[in-house]
């Protein structure tokens, strides 16, 4: 898991490399998963009629969860149940975009803002709820957007793993409100992915990431779509184009 930077004197291109052991993963998405092999070492939670099962929570806790929060809390809980409690990195590019857009619409119409909706729109609300539901006393961070997309979460996890043995990374997205769609890439489904990462080793699944500060790679894929599809189709590598960089990831089964 040690980030290694190498610089080429000729091109001054810096590569960043990271490697983790992917100890466990859990995915839920709002469409029926394809009936094909997925990545080993993890689970796709049942579609459950388009709403992930959060029966592990009492009603007074589950009642306020949005569809996005249900998905994130379900996969996070699954990984904590299987792997114990651990520090976590929650990542979403736009978080509760449906809620905060509705709230902005309401403000324009001079309506009062719902206090519970407002509190749940805060970007770290889902991470906080998940921590609360698990009665966890472990630290968590909540990241959004940025030019490195999800890979910012891996950088954060790499930093955490210098001090702790395992980290939970939870990534969750949903379709953006129509008003944003002309300006931003959006997911067409609601989904959440949780990954339990430990330091790189000689066993299990090694998730390798390489970042290059390049642009305009015509073969690169959209990060989210690429990774989720890869998990579901048991594809083990891909290239992802971000604003300022290209990330190459691969899953090697040792």
């Amino acid at each position: 898991m040690k980030p290694i930077r190498t610089a080429s004197a000729e091109s001054a291109i810096k590569e960043t490399r990271m490697c983790f052991t992917l100890q466990h993963w859990c995915l839920w998405q709002s469409e029926e998963p394809p009936l094909v092999d997925h990545w080993p070492g993890g689970e796709v939670l049942p579609y459950n009629g388009g709403s992930p099962d959060v029966g592990f929570l009492p009603m007074m806790q589950s009642r306020r969860l949005s569809p996005l929060a249900r998905a994130a809390c379900a996969v996070a809980n699954h990984c904590r149940q299987k792997n114990g409690d651990m520090p976590s990195v929650f990542f979403s590019s736009h978080g509760e975009s449906q809620y905060y857009f509705e709230m902005l619409d309401g403000i324009v119409a001079h309506e009062d803002v719902s206090p519970s909706r407002f509190s749940l729109c805060v970007h770290n609300a889902i991470a906080g709820l998940s921590s609360f539901h698990s009665t966890s006393f472990q630290p968590y961070v909540s990241l959004s957007g940025g030019t490195e997309g999800l890979f910012a979460a891996f950088l954060e996890a790499a930093g955490m793993l210098l001090e702790v043995p395992k980290v939970l990374v939870v990534w969750y997205e949903q379709p953006l409100p129509d008003a944003y769609r002309a300006h931003l890439a959006t997911s067409e489904t609601t989904w959440a992915l949780a990954m339990v990462l430990t330091r790189a080793g000689n066993s299990d699944q090694q998730l390798r990431l390489v970042r290059r500060p390049d642009k305009d790679l015509s073969t690169a894929e959209d990060t989210a779509k690429s990774l989720i599809q890869a998990i579901l189709e048991n594809r083990r590598s891909s290239l992802c184009q971000l604003d300022r960089s290209i990330w190459q990831w691969s899953l090697d089964y040792v």
Binding site: M60, D112, S114, P115, S116, S119
Partner: peptide, 17 residues
């Protein structure tokens, strides 16, 4: 019933509406 402080604010808003 086990309501909390956010519920109290939400309820206040509902009574107003």
């Amino acid at each position: 019933l086990g309501l909390d402080s956010i519920d109290a604010l939400e309820l206040g808003l509902a009574l107003k509406k």
